[in-house]
């Protein structure tokens, strides 16, 4: 079991070490792009909880991301709040709106819910344009970007990257509190078999809405961070396609893996650029093929890839050495995916 746990935490350790080493390895403009990826990663983290653990699909994650971004911008522009201080508010406001979006989920599941939430994502940019008195309409909103304090030795990009990592760490920390223990079990229970869950006393309504609330809070926090990183937002940043991108990031990274959320975020931020760099005319085609190949090779997402391989290698090792104590005592112990 300890062996299995070790392999499960391998991607997390890898992602965390890469994140911490990046400032040394990457130039400042890359650091900025990685910061953006982290902000998406936080929104994907929310989708992990919602889709991966509670089994509800939400194609409005990009709109919720936008609501977080606009909350930060409006609080800063209208009330002069420090953008960093607005982040908790971005999470809370988005969470409340997320619960409203989640209400139909109590009756609709699966494909119907996908369409309803995508409807929200489609309406969102138009809504921003209509509410131009507070959102600034087409011109968008520019915020006062938080500057690196004087004592900070690095660049402005490094400062913002550090801020992103702190937000990400806080998100992972809070999410892992929700996913362990009873709350995590009840989410998986209502995902895998709602009928049995209900007969075990699980409050399906509360569980589903809590998942929406937490997922949206993360989307809002990611959005708020995105706004700070860019210093400027407009409806153009929150088109319906953003929600699909976030879903792709979640699935490509591995929908039940926290490390996978950030791997997926890096994927959706960098890979479209790389494929265009390979051939400017065929960028979309190569990206599409990439996605198809990805799902053929790594069905459980990138984060699931090394685990599966690692476990198989482990099994082979034990079988070769004949350590029946481990593999024989409890059949199927290592058999899980």
């Amino acid at each position: 079991m300890n062996g299995t746990r070790m392999f499960q935490s391998a991607p997390a350790v890898l992602v965390a070490s890469v994140a911490l080493c990046l400032p040394v390895l990457a130039p400042d403009f890359m650091l900025f792009e990685f910061s953006i990826a982290v902000s998406y990663g936080i929104a994907i983290l929310g989708l992990n909880l919602l889709l991966g653990f509670s089994g509800q699909i939400c194609l409005a994650q990009g709109a919720l991301f936008g609501i977080g971004a606009y909350t930060t911008a409006i609080f800063n522009v209208n009330f002069g709040m420090d953008p960093i201080v607005t982040l908790p508010f971005a999470a809370i406001v988005t969470s409340l709106i997320g619960v409203l979006i989640g209400l139909p989920a109590l009756r609709l599941q699966g494909l119907q819910l996908a369409i309803v939430t995508f409807g929200v994502a489609s309406a969102f940019p138009q809504l921003l344009l209509k509410m131009d008195s507070i959102t600034g309409g087409v011109t968008g909103l520019a915020i006062d970007q938080p500057m690196a304090p004087r004592w900070f030795p690095g660049s402005q990009e490094l400062w913002l990257y550090g801020l992103s990592l702190i937000c990400a760490a806080a998100s992972v920390f809070m999410l892992s509190r929700l996913l362990r223990g009873d709350t995590g079990r009840l989410l998986r229970a209502l995902r895998d078999n709602p009928l049995v869950a209900e007969s075990l006393g699980v409050n399906l309504t509360k569980g589903r809405l809590a998942a929406f609330a937490a997922s949206s809070a993360l989307a809002g926090l990611g959005g708020g961070l995105f706004c700070i990183l860019n210093g400027f937002i407009s409806p153009q940043s929150f088109l319906p396609m953003k929600s699909i991108d976030i879903l792709i990031g979640g699935i490509v990274g591995g929908i039940t893996s926290m490390a996978g959320a950030f791997i997926g975020a890096v994927f959706i931020v960098f890979v479209p650029g790389w494929t265009t760099a390979i051939n400017p005319a065929l960028g979309g085609l190569i990206y599409g093929l990439c996605l198809i190949a990805m799902m053929m090779v790594a069905r459980q997402g990138i984060a699931g890839l090394p685990i599966g391989r690692g476990l198989q290698a482990l099994k082979h090792l034990f079988n070769k050495k004949g350590l029946s104590r481990v593999s024989g005592a409890v059949p199927g112990q290592l058999g899980g995916e």
Partner: peptide, 20 residues
């Protein structure tokens, strides 16, 4: 163990705010 612990869910479970 997780399956069995789900049986005890109704005794004190489902507290998202407490978990956070």
């Amino acid at each position: 163990l997780e399956n069995v612990m789900l049986g005890a869910h109704h005794l004190s479970g489902g507290r998202f705010v407490d978990a956070l």
